[in-house]
């Protein structure tokens, strides 16, 4: 992030942000982008509205405009009633919202958020992630998140760049990376009267030419794609013939964790 903001020179390679070179056009670039730091330490005694207003002014918004925008953006992040409270008296979740508010108050084209859900409970994390998604979709602000929580990345990101020890592991659109189906997963319900029903379904699918994998005593069958054009029909018929009960049937998609592990290995 410090390279993208023009605060550090890259050791090798080149970088362009919003068509600008960060080192050469650092000040110009930083008037178009914003940053939300990872650390949860903010000026404790400053009221949230003063803090947001001040940073909006520093980012080039005229004083009067900064004042109204500070209030508006704090309402947007759900801190309208709390805007005159000193930041030091706020909870971790509220501080994260203040950090987001200061980052978007100056209407940047791009926002860098470093671990935006750090220290939040699951409920507060969901709220902050929803807010980030909303800001991006409704106001057209591009947001770049740095996070080690893969679930939250999958939840809100469109594009990803995975780095490991400073080296690029994988990059691309999340949909394309995770959207490649790796087969079908079938979960069956065990029936006391017919203990061999799941074995019968497995056998039937193998006989139909499908590649089936199943862990011992598991009720889940994993079927590889590519062996048949109509695997769903074959599965339906096999379940019906064996008298088994179907719990779920779905395409298997790779998780971000799968992608990273596959690429790393």
């Amino acid at each position: 992030m410090s390279i993208a903001l023009g605060l550090r020179k890259p050791t090798q390679g080149a970088i362009r942000v919003l068509t600008l070179e960060p080192i050469k056009d650092g000040a110009k670039l930083r008037s178009l982008v914003s940053y939300g730091p990872e650390r949860n330490i903010l000026p404790d005694e400053m009221p949230a509205v003063d803090f947001v207003k001040h940073l909006a002014e520093v980012r080039g918004i005229p004083r009067k405009e900064a004042k109204t925008r500070a209030s508006d953006v704090l309402w947007l992040v759900g801190l309208g009633e709390e805007r005159f409270r000193p930041i030091g008296t706020m909870s971790t979740g509220q501080r994260q919202r203040v950090k987001l508010a200061q980052a978007i108050a100056a209407d940047p084209q791009l926002v860098f958020l470093d671990e935006p859900t750090d220290g939040l409970d699951p409920l507060a994390r969901d709220e902050v992630l929803t807010l980030i998604r909303q800001v991006s979709e409704e106001y057209g602000i591009h947001i770049m998140i740095s996070s080690h929580l893969l679930e939250e990345v999958e939840q809100i990101c469109d594009n990803i760049v995975v780095l490991n020890a400073g080296k690029l592991v994988v990059a691309g659109q999340l949909n394309q990376l995770t959207g490649q189906s790796t087969g079908i997963e079938v979960e069956l319900v065990p029936i006391d009267d017919q203990p061999t029903a799941i074995d019968a379904v497995e056998r039937s699918l193998r006989q139909a030419g499908l590649t089936v994998t199943r862990e011992a005593d598991s009720t889940v069958l994993r079927i590889q794609d590519g062996t048949s054009e109509t695997p769903a029909d074959l599965i339906r018929d096999a379940v019906a013939e064996a008298g088994a009960r179907l719990h779920r049937i779905q395409h298997r998609r790779r998780s971000l964790e799968d992608i990273i592990l596959d690429t790393s290995s």
Binding site: L5, A27, K28, R30, Y35, P37, P43, L55, Q102, F112
Partner: peptide
């Protein structure tokens, strides 16, 4: 209080 980092992300 982290203001230095924030200032450095501005012009």
């Amino acid at each position: 209080n982290g203001m230095f980092s924030l200032y450095m992300s501005t012009p």
